[in-house]
Amino acid sequence: MAHFTLAVSERTFQRSFDLLKRNLTFAQADQTSFGIFVAGYDVRAHLEGGTIDLRADNTISVKELDIRWDRLRFMLGINIPEICVGGGCINMPWPIPDICLPRVCVFSGNPDVSISPDLAAFVAQEVSFTGSVVARYFDASLPVPSPDPCAPIRLEPLPSHNQWHIHIDPQTIDVDLFDFPDIAGNLIENALSNAIRAIIPGGFVRDIILAIIGGIADFIRFLLDIPDEIDEWLSDLFNVSFGLLDFIGTLILDFFSSCNPIYRIDDPFELLPARDGLIPVRIPLRDLSVRVNDVEMVAEVNIGG
Protein backbone atom coordinates (compact mmCIF):
# COMPACT_ATOMS: atom_id res chain seq x y z
CA MET A 1 0.00 0.00 0.00
CA ALA A 2 1.42 3.36 -1.03
CA HIS A 3 2.29 5.93 1.63
CA PHE A 4 0.41 8.72 -0.14
CA THR A 5 -2.47 8.23 -2.56
CA LEU A 6 -4.48 10.76 -4.55
CA ALA A 7 -7.35 9.65 -6.78
CA VAL A 8 -9.51 11.77 -9.09
CA SER A 9 -12.72 10.30 -10.50
CA GLU A 10 -13.61 10.22 -14.18
CA ARG A 11 -16.72 12.21 -13.28
CA THR A 12 -14.48 15.00 -11.95
CA PHE A 13 -12.45 14.96 -15.16
CA GLN A 14 -15.65 15.25 -17.20
CA ARG A 15 -17.00 18.11 -15.11
CA SER A 16 -13.67 19.90 -15.23
CA PHE A 17 -13.58 19.38 -19.00
CA ASP A 18 -17.06 20.91 -19.32
CA LEU A 19 -16.02 23.81 -17.10
CA LEU A 20 -12.97 24.38 -19.22
CA LYS A 21 -15.08 24.44 -22.38
CA ARG A 22 -17.61 26.81 -20.87
CA ASN A 23 -15.05 29.24 -19.55
CA LEU A 24 -11.92 29.06 -21.62
CA THR A 25 -11.64 31.59 -24.41
CA PHE A 26 -8.57 32.56 -26.33
CA ALA A 27 -8.29 36.10 -27.64
CA GLN A 28 -5.31 37.88 -29.05
CA ALA A 29 -4.65 40.78 -31.40
CA ASP A 30 -1.48 42.32 -32.73
CA GLN A 31 -0.26 44.46 -35.61
CA THR A 32 3.21 45.09 -36.90
CA SER A 33 4.83 46.67 -39.97
CA PHE A 34 7.54 45.38 -42.26
CA GLY A 35 8.63 48.38 -44.32
CA ILE A 36 5.73 49.33 -46.55
CA PHE A 37 3.73 46.27 -45.50
CA VAL A 38 1.50 46.14 -42.44
CA ALA A 39 0.27 42.83 -41.07
CA GLY A 40 -1.97 42.05 -38.15
CA TYR A 41 -4.39 39.62 -36.67
CA ASP A 42 -7.35 39.72 -34.32
CA VAL A 43 -8.49 36.29 -33.18
CA ARG A 44 -10.84 34.93 -30.58
CA ALA A 45 -11.74 31.26 -30.09
CA HIS A 46 -13.51 28.99 -27.68
CA LEU A 47 -13.95 25.24 -27.22
CA GLU A 48 -17.07 23.25 -27.95
CA GLY A 49 -18.26 19.69 -27.97
CA GLY A 50 -15.91 16.81 -27.37
CA THR A 51 -15.77 14.19 -24.68
CA ILE A 52 -13.16 13.02 -22.25
CA ASP A 53 -12.90 9.42 -21.24
CA LEU A 54 -10.65 7.54 -18.82
CA ARG A 55 -9.93 4.12 -20.24
CA ALA A 56 -8.98 0.80 -18.75
CA ASP A 57 -5.77 0.66 -20.84
CA ASN A 58 -4.14 3.40 -18.74
CA THR A 59 -4.98 6.18 -21.21
CA ILE A 60 -7.13 9.28 -21.35
CA SER A 61 -9.05 9.96 -24.53
CA VAL A 62 -10.32 13.35 -25.69
CA LYS A 63 -12.57 13.01 -28.72
CA GLU A 64 -13.75 15.56 -31.26
CA LEU A 65 -13.07 18.68 -29.29
CA ASP A 66 -13.97 21.60 -31.54
CA ILE A 67 -11.99 24.81 -31.61
CA ARG A 68 -14.52 27.40 -32.73
CA TRP A 69 -13.34 30.75 -33.97
CA ASP A 70 -15.53 33.69 -32.97
CA ARG A 71 -13.16 35.98 -34.82
CA LEU A 72 -10.33 35.03 -37.14
CA ARG A 73 -9.41 38.22 -38.85
CA PHE A 74 -6.11 38.71 -40.61
CA MET A 75 -5.07 42.07 -42.00
CA LEU A 76 -2.53 42.76 -44.72
CA GLY A 77 -1.95 46.34 -45.80
CA ILE A 78 0.45 48.35 -47.96
CA ASN A 79 1.68 51.82 -47.11
CA ILE A 80 2.52 53.54 -50.42
CA PRO A 81 4.57 56.72 -50.05
CA GLU A 82 2.34 59.81 -50.29
CA ILE A 83 2.36 61.62 -53.63
CA CYS A 84 1.10 65.23 -53.80
CA VAL A 85 0.64 67.55 -56.75
CA GLY A 86 -0.30 71.22 -56.96
CA GLY A 87 -0.52 73.56 -53.99
CA GLY A 88 1.69 76.39 -55.35
CA CYS A 89 0.59 80.04 -55.90
CA ILE A 90 1.29 82.44 -58.79
CA ASN A 91 1.81 86.06 -57.70
CA MET A 92 -0.20 88.39 -59.92
CA PRO A 93 0.28 92.20 -60.21
CA TRP A 94 -2.09 94.39 -58.22
CA PRO A 95 -5.09 94.51 -58.30
CA ILE A 96 -5.30 90.95 -59.72
CA PRO A 97 -5.46 88.40 -56.90
CA ASP A 98 -2.81 85.63 -56.70
CA ILE A 99 -3.75 82.41 -58.37
CA CYS A 100 -3.27 79.34 -56.11
CA LEU A 101 -3.48 75.80 -57.46
CA PRO A 102 -5.29 73.20 -55.35
CA ARG A 103 -3.06 70.61 -53.63
CA VAL A 104 -4.04 67.00 -54.33
CA CYS A 105 -2.41 64.11 -52.46
CA VAL A 106 -2.81 60.39 -52.98
CA PHE A 107 -1.78 57.43 -50.82
CA SER A 108 -2.07 59.46 -47.62
CA GLY A 109 -3.90 56.72 -45.73
CA ASN A 110 -2.29 54.35 -43.26
CA PRO A 111 -2.33 51.76 -44.71
CA ASP A 112 -3.38 52.88 -48.16
CA VAL A 113 -4.62 49.52 -49.32
CA SER A 114 -5.62 46.74 -46.96
CA ILE A 115 -7.59 43.55 -46.83
CA SER A 116 -8.88 42.08 -43.58
CA PRO A 117 -10.96 38.99 -44.19
CA ASP A 118 -12.65 37.36 -41.22
CA LEU A 119 -12.29 33.64 -41.78
CA ALA A 120 -14.12 32.65 -38.60
CA ALA A 121 -17.10 31.25 -40.51
CA PHE A 122 -14.90 29.16 -42.78
CA VAL A 123 -12.46 27.64 -40.33
CA ALA A 124 -13.02 25.16 -37.54
CA GLN A 125 -10.66 22.66 -36.02
CA GLU A 126 -11.39 19.40 -34.33
CA VAL A 127 -8.95 17.67 -32.04
CA SER A 128 -8.96 14.08 -30.87
CA PHE A 129 -6.26 12.88 -28.58
CA THR A 130 -5.33 9.75 -26.68
CA GLY A 131 -2.49 9.66 -24.21
CA SER A 132 -1.35 8.55 -20.84
CA VAL A 133 0.17 10.31 -17.87
CA VAL A 134 3.54 8.94 -16.90
CA ALA A 135 6.00 9.69 -14.13
CA ARG A 136 9.69 9.57 -14.95
CA TYR A 137 12.71 10.08 -12.75
CA PHE A 138 15.34 12.60 -13.75
CA ASP A 139 18.69 11.60 -12.29
CA ALA A 140 20.92 14.65 -12.37
CA SER A 141 24.02 12.51 -11.88
CA LEU A 142 23.57 10.81 -15.25
CA PRO A 143 25.16 12.47 -18.29
CA VAL A 144 22.87 14.18 -20.78
CA PRO A 145 22.79 12.21 -24.07
CA SER A 146 24.91 13.65 -26.82
CA PRO A 147 23.52 14.91 -29.12
CA ASP A 148 20.58 15.94 -26.95
CA PRO A 149 17.41 15.65 -29.09
CA CYS A 150 15.43 17.68 -26.58
CA ALA A 151 17.78 20.67 -26.53
CA PRO A 152 16.03 22.70 -29.28
CA ILE A 153 12.54 22.38 -27.79
CA ARG A 154 13.19 22.22 -24.06
CA LEU A 155 11.19 25.00 -22.44
CA GLU A 156 13.02 24.95 -19.12
CA PRO A 157 16.68 24.08 -18.57
CA LEU A 158 17.51 20.72 -17.02
CA PRO A 159 17.57 20.90 -13.22
CA SER A 160 20.81 20.51 -11.33
CA HIS A 161 19.21 18.11 -8.87
CA ASN A 162 17.06 14.99 -9.04
CA GLN A 163 13.39 15.42 -9.87
CA TRP A 164 10.27 13.44 -10.61
CA HIS A 165 8.76 14.53 -13.91
CA ILE A 166 5.12 14.07 -14.86
CA HIS A 167 4.72 13.80 -18.62
CA ILE A 168 1.79 13.63 -20.97
CA ASP A 169 2.63 10.74 -23.24
CA PRO A 170 0.50 11.05 -26.40
CA GLN A 171 -0.29 7.85 -28.23
CA THR A 172 -2.54 9.20 -30.97
CA ILE A 173 -3.50 12.68 -31.99
CA ASP A 174 -5.91 13.63 -34.73
CA VAL A 175 -6.19 17.27 -35.69
CA ASP A 176 -8.58 18.29 -38.44
CA LEU A 177 -7.04 21.59 -39.43
CA PHE A 178 -10.13 22.37 -41.49
CA ASP A 179 -13.14 20.59 -40.13
CA PHE A 180 -15.09 20.57 -43.40
CA PRO A 181 -18.22 18.93 -42.04
CA ASP A 182 -18.56 21.65 -39.42
CA ILE A 183 -17.69 24.42 -41.88
CA ALA A 184 -20.27 23.18 -44.40
CA GLY A 185 -22.84 22.63 -41.70
CA ASN A 186 -22.28 26.11 -40.25
CA LEU A 187 -22.50 27.79 -43.66
CA ILE A 188 -25.69 25.94 -44.62
CA GLU A 189 -27.28 26.58 -41.26
CA ASN A 190 -26.36 30.29 -41.33
CA ALA A 191 -27.58 30.80 -44.91
CA LEU A 192 -30.89 29.04 -44.37
CA SER A 193 -31.46 30.69 -41.00
CA ASN A 194 -30.85 34.16 -42.40
CA ALA A 195 -33.24 33.47 -45.28
CA ILE A 196 -35.97 32.27 -42.93
CA ARG A 197 -35.45 35.26 -40.59
CA ALA A 198 -35.86 37.58 -43.57
CA ILE A 199 -39.09 35.89 -44.63
CA ILE A 200 -40.65 35.30 -41.20
CA PRO A 201 -39.84 38.12 -38.75
CA GLY A 202 -40.71 36.14 -35.57
CA GLY A 203 -43.03 33.78 -33.80
CA PHE A 204 -43.20 30.07 -33.05
CA VAL A 205 -43.45 29.06 -36.73
CA ARG A 206 -40.08 30.62 -37.38
CA ASP A 207 -38.61 28.91 -34.30
CA ILE A 208 -39.88 25.53 -35.48
CA ILE A 209 -38.43 26.01 -38.95
CA LEU A 210 -35.10 27.14 -37.48
CA ALA A 211 -35.02 24.05 -35.29
CA ILE A 212 -35.60 21.85 -38.33
CA ILE A 213 -32.81 23.64 -40.17
CA GLY A 214 -30.51 23.01 -37.20
CA GLY A 215 -31.35 19.32 -37.44
CA ILE A 216 -30.70 19.24 -41.17
CA ALA A 217 -27.36 21.00 -40.68
CA ASP A 218 -26.42 18.49 -37.98
CA PHE A 219 -27.31 15.66 -40.35
CA ILE A 220 -25.09 17.17 -43.03
CA ARG A 221 -22.29 17.51 -40.50
CA PHE A 222 -22.78 13.87 -39.53
CA LEU A 223 -22.73 12.65 -43.13
CA LEU A 224 -19.62 14.59 -43.97
CA ASP A 225 -17.92 13.50 -40.77
CA ILE A 226 -18.16 9.76 -41.45
CA PRO A 227 -14.76 9.41 -43.17
CA ASP A 228 -13.18 11.30 -40.31
CA GLU A 229 -14.90 9.03 -37.80
CA ILE A 230 -13.39 6.04 -39.61
CA ASP A 231 -9.97 7.65 -39.56
CA GLU A 232 -10.23 8.30 -35.83
CA TRP A 233 -11.52 4.80 -35.20
CA LEU A 234 -8.63 3.25 -37.15
CA SER A 235 -6.19 5.54 -35.41
CA ASP A 236 -7.56 4.38 -32.09
CA LEU A 237 -7.44 0.74 -33.13
CA PHE A 238 -3.90 0.64 -34.42
CA ASN A 239 -2.48 3.19 -32.03
CA VAL A 240 -1.07 5.22 -34.90
CA SER A 241 -2.26 8.38 -36.50
CA PHE A 242 -3.05 8.77 -40.18
CA GLY A 243 -2.30 11.74 -42.30
CA LEU A 244 0.91 13.70 -42.66
CA LEU A 245 -0.23 16.53 -40.42
CA ASP A 246 -1.30 14.10 -37.76
CA PHE A 247 2.04 12.34 -38.05
CA ILE A 248 3.87 15.62 -37.58
CA GLY A 249 1.61 16.44 -34.67
CA THR A 250 2.32 13.09 -33.08
CA LEU A 251 6.02 13.56 -33.64
CA ILE A 252 5.97 16.99 -32.04
CA LEU A 253 3.94 15.80 -29.10
CA ASP A 254 6.21 12.79 -28.70
CA PHE A 255 9.07 15.21 -28.40
CA PHE A 256 7.17 17.20 -25.84
CA SER A 257 6.27 14.07 -23.96
CA SER A 258 9.95 13.32 -23.47
CA CYS A 259 11.35 16.78 -23.16
CA ASN A 260 8.89 18.99 -21.31
CA PRO A 261 7.16 17.66 -18.22
CA ILE A 262 3.86 19.23 -17.21
CA TYR A 263 4.85 19.04 -13.54
CA ARG A 264 8.10 18.65 -11.62
CA ILE A 265 8.65 17.53 -8.05
CA ASP A 266 12.05 17.87 -6.42
CA ASP A 267 13.57 14.73 -4.94
CA PRO A 268 14.23 15.03 -2.09
CA PHE A 269 11.18 17.21 -1.51
CA GLU A 270 11.70 20.22 0.76
CA LEU A 271 9.34 19.82 3.71
CA LEU A 272 10.73 22.56 5.98
CA PRO A 273 12.73 25.44 4.51
CA ALA A 274 16.15 26.49 5.77
CA ARG A 275 15.71 28.79 8.73
CA ASP A 276 17.99 30.56 11.20
CA GLY A 277 21.05 28.94 9.66
CA LEU A 278 19.56 25.43 9.80
CA ILE A 279 19.54 23.23 6.74
CA PRO A 280 16.15 22.51 5.13
CA VAL A 281 14.36 19.28 5.96
CA ARG A 282 14.08 17.19 2.82
CA ILE A 283 12.09 14.02 2.29
CA PRO A 284 13.08 11.43 -0.32
CA LEU A 285 10.23 10.47 -2.67
CA ARG A 286 10.17 6.98 -4.09
CA ASP A 287 8.08 5.04 -6.61
CA LEU A 288 5.98 7.95 -7.86
CA SER A 289 3.42 6.56 -10.26
CA VAL A 290 0.32 7.71 -12.10
CA ARG A 291 -2.15 5.22 -13.50
CA VAL A 292 -5.55 5.44 -15.13
CA ASN A 293 -8.39 2.97 -15.21
CA ASP A 294 -11.91 3.38 -16.55
CA VAL A 295 -13.20 5.10 -13.41
CA GLU A 296 -10.36 7.19 -11.98
CA MET A 297 -6.79 8.43 -12.16
CA VAL A 298 -4.59 7.43 -9.24
CA ALA A 299 -1.26 8.97 -8.23
CA GLU A 300 0.84 7.27 -5.56
CA VAL A 301 4.17 7.96 -3.93
CA ASN A 302 6.23 6.45 -1.13
CA ILE A 303 8.56 8.08 1.35
CA GLY A 304 12.11 6.79 1.28
CA GLY A 305 13.66 5.32 4.40
Binding site: H3, A7, V8, R282, I303
Partner: peptide
Protein backbone atom coordinates in the same frame (compact mmCIF):
# COMPACT_ATOMS: atom_id res chain seq x y z
CA UNK B 1 -14.87 13.12 -6.50
CA UNK B 2 -11.35 13.28 -5.11
CA UNK B 3 -9.76 10.91 -2.61
CA UNK B 4 -6.57 11.36 -0.63
CA UNK B 5 -4.93 9.10 1.90
CA UNK B 6 -1.77 8.87 3.92
CA UNK B 7 -0.45 5.64 5.37
CA UNK B 8 0.92 5.53 8.93
CA UNK B 9 4.28 4.30 7.64
CA UNK B 10 4.54 7.40 5.44
CA UNK B 11 3.90 9.71 8.40
CA UNK B 12 6.31 7.80 10.65
CA UNK B 13 9.04 7.98 8.03
CA UNK B 14 8.49 11.73 7.66
CA UNK B 15 8.71 12.13 11.44
CA UNK B 16 11.99 10.17 11.48
CA UNK B 17 13.41 12.37 8.71
CA UNK B 18 12.41 15.53 10.58
Amino acid sequence: DIFGSVHEEGINRIVRHV
